[in-house]
């Protein structure tokens, strides 16, 4: 679906004198894409450009037909770009369910005033959101933890809750930032299964930033490798992984 296509064209980002992204071109369309590269290559910066936290010096970002550069971050989030963060950002004092409900914030048709006066329509919408959030937890097997406080659940759960929150925003594109980092093997499997199920159901374009090349090669249909702000390789996982320049980037130059 073209409206679910995310395209970056000639993105240049520099912080101070530091060039972080250098003429980056990327297209993500349907399925699961991997964005990989050594530390500091600029992967999270790409996400920040897409979701509007960082303005590039030049270049364009389009989702479907709509340009995103220069648009306010919260508008981009409401427009259809869901995202998670390297360390999960959940509200510790709220329950898991409430944290997921945050994602449905923009789907309300009633405003805060209606809420204040306790209108029936608002209460119906609130109920619908609660149910949707609960359902959103089920692919991750977290429905039983729905009433736990976010501060008391383990990291793996936090990461999955954050993904559930991003998914419930009903996005066209889902940007995941190192979702498997710090997770044990069984949790990673759970996460990947849930993710694949969700992607299939909703026909989402999903991008994953990951360090674990092995994992990414296994589950992604497409890989893009970023190194010092430039795309050095792109394509099917098998060919990318065995690409010489990629290996060099990850392991460094081998002497002789």
């Amino acid at each position: 679906m073209t409206s679910h296509t995310l395209a970056l064209r000639d993105i240049n980002v520099a912080f101070g004198g530091n060039k972080v992204l250098d003429g980056v071109n990327l297209t993500f369309s349907g399925g699961l894409h991997g964005l990989v590269g050594p530390n500091g290559a600029g992967k999270t910066t790409c996400y920040n450009v897409i979701s509007g936290y960082v303005t590039p010096q030049s270049g364009s970002v389009t989702l479907g037909d709509t340009p995103l550069v220069g648009v306010a971050a919260h508008e981009i989030g409401a427009f259809g770009v869901g995202r998670t963060f390297q360390t999960p950002k959940l509200v510790p004092s709220m329950t898991v369910l409430e944290n997921v409900m945050l994602g449905a914030n923009r789907t309300y048709t009633t405003g805060h005033v209606a809420e204040f006066f306790g209108s029936k329509r608002f209460r119906a919408e609130e109920r619908r959101v609660r149910e949707l959030a609960y359902l959103g937890l089920q692919p991750f097997g977290l429905a039983d933890s729905a009433r736990d406080k976010a501060s008391s659940v383990p990291l793996a759960v936090q990461k999955m809750v954050e993904i559930a929150r991003a998914v419930i925003t009903d996005p066209r594109v889902l940007l995941l930032d190192e979702p498997a980092a710090g997770l044990g093997a069984s949790d990673v499997d759970k996460l990947v299964n849930a993710l694949q199920q969700i992607i299939k159901e909703r026909n989402l374009t999903t991008v994953i930033i990951e360090h674990d090349l092995h994992l990414v090669a296994k589950i992604c249909t497409n890989l893009s490798v970023l190194h010092y702000g430039r795309i050095i390789a792109e394509g099917e996982p098998r060919s990318v992984v065995s690409d010489e320049t990629v290996i060099e980037a990850y392991l460094g130059r081998r002497k002789g």
């Binding site: 709509t66 648009v71 409401a78 427009f79």
Partner: peptide
Amino acid sequence: LVKTIKPRE
């Protein structure tokens, strides 16, 4: 000020 998207297509 930052410009905003028109109502969601």
